[in-house]
Amino acid sequence: MIEVKGVTKKFGRKQVLKGISFTAEKGEITCLIGINGVGKTTIMNAIMALTPINNGQILINGEEIHKGSYEKITFIPDAITMLPQMKISDAMQFMDDFYDCWNQKRADEMLGFFKLDKNERISSLSKGNTAKVNLLLGLAMDVDYVLMDEPFSGIDIFSREQIAEVFTSHLIEDRGVIITTHEINDIEHLIDKAILLNEGVVLKEFNTEEIRENEGKSVIDVMREVYQS
């Protein structure tokens, strides 16, 4: 379980996170939803210790993040983190060199699924393919948790469909996933839990199937209620 407890964060004078708390379970897809600029990426960075927080605590399986944690949890930012001059195969080699949890078999499988040529340079990839390589590099790691920042933004519809397909496949199975989005349409049926954020606070945290079952509302219905009230 990933526990985010009362996290606050200031950038200069701007309070970006004002006491955020939520949990994300292993085996579930948790979705952080918010109109742009509500601190979704900051939360992701904070979980990965890529930005310091002012207050609060973040626990991964009950412990604070440390170097060994990066074999258990990975983060796929909204832009690829490999050098542009690298070939896809170089990037995979880099991962293999540094991570014990790198699973080459799975990486090859995803290469095939996404129809990527591993001799292509990262700088020459299309936007959609860059997003796929980015996803591949994260998902080919045998980790418990995967964080993804806006995996669907700014790419073409077919790439989006392919990426959505990944979510329902064995590539995700039994892992805990946290994804951020400002566009829920594509993934409404894929997520277990929705967390609605606004201006640095959690407005509502709910299980999507439960809200459909108990209140007969879609995620968008709830968003409308919460954001427009």
Binding site: M48, A49, L50, K67, G68, S69, Y70, E71, T74, F75, P77, A79, I80, T81, M82, L83, P84, F94, F98, Y99, D100, I122, S123
Partner: peptide, 17 residues
């Protein structure tokens, strides 16, 4: 400031920073 922010990768390596 490179074209791709490689620092993400470097800071997320499973080794002491």
């Amino acid at each position: 400031f490179g074209k791709n922010t490689f620092i993400y990768r470097l800071l997320m390596l499973p080794t002491a920073r």
